[in-house]
Amino acid sequence: YETDHQDYCEVCQQGGEIILCDTCPRAYHMVCLDPDMEKAPEGKWSCPHCEKE
């Protein structure tokens, strides 16, 4: 199925295993987040940009 999420990391602009924000189209590698994540979040997750809003 098609999503509106970007298929690359917002921080480093590379693809790969990325996690998707449930609020906006941004996507991130877990290691590119500050602080980085050990494992993928369970349930709904909002990226740092959305958390600030």
Results as ranks from 00 to 15, higher is better:
20 L>Y: 07
26 R>M: 14
22 D>G: 11
5 H>M: 15
48 P>L: 08
50 C>I: 02
33 L>I: 04
7 D>I: 03
14 Q>K: 11
15 G>Q: 10
36 D>N: 12
21 C>F: 00
16 G>V: 04
33 L>E: 02
23 T>Y: 04
14 Q>C: 04
34 D>T: 10
13 Q>L: 09
22 D>K: 12
13 Q>W: 05
45 W>C: 09
18 I>C: 06
53 E>T: 01
11 V>I: 10
49 H>A: 04
44 K>D: 13
32 C>N: 00
39 K>Q: 04
51 E>C: 06
48 P>F: 07
25 P>W: 05
44 K>F: 10
9 C>L: 01
16 G>K: 12
44 K>V: 08
22 D>A: 12
52 K>A: 05
11 V>K: 14
44 K>I: 03
33 L>T: 14
19 I>G: 08
6 Q>Y: 05
48 P>T: 08
10 E>G: 13
28 Y>W: 13
33 L>M: 09
35 P>D: 06
19 I>R: 12
50 C>R: 02
14 Q>F: 13
45 W>Q: 13
4 D>N: 08
45 W>L: 06
49 H>Q: 07
8 Y>Q: 15
17 E>T: 10
16 G>N: 14
30 M>I: 11
44 K>P: 13
7 D>W: 04
38 E>S: 05
48 P>N: 01
43 G>H: 02
48 P>C: 11
49 H>E: 05
50 C>V: 02
4 D>V: 14
46 S>K: 02
28 Y>A: 07
27 A>Y: 13
26 R>T: 06
36 D>V: 10
45 W>I: 12
43 G>A: 13
51 E>W: 04
41 P>Y: 12
14 Q>D: 12
14 Q>R: 14
33 L>G: 06
29 H>W: 00
25 P>N: 14
30 M>C: 14
27 A>T: 09
22 D>I: 12
43 G>C: 06
14 Q>L: 03
7 D>L: 06
28 Y>T: 04
3 T>H: 03
47 C>A: 01
52 K>H: 15
27 A>G: 07
51 E>K: 05
41 P>G: 14
52 K>F: 03
3 T>Q: 04
36 D>L: 02
27 A>Q: 03
31 V>A: 14
13 Q>R: 13
34 D>E: 13
22 D>N: 08
50 C>P: 01
36 D>W: 03
12 C>G: 01
35 P>C: 09
42 E>F: 04
26 R>K: 10
20 L>I: 12
32 C>K: 01
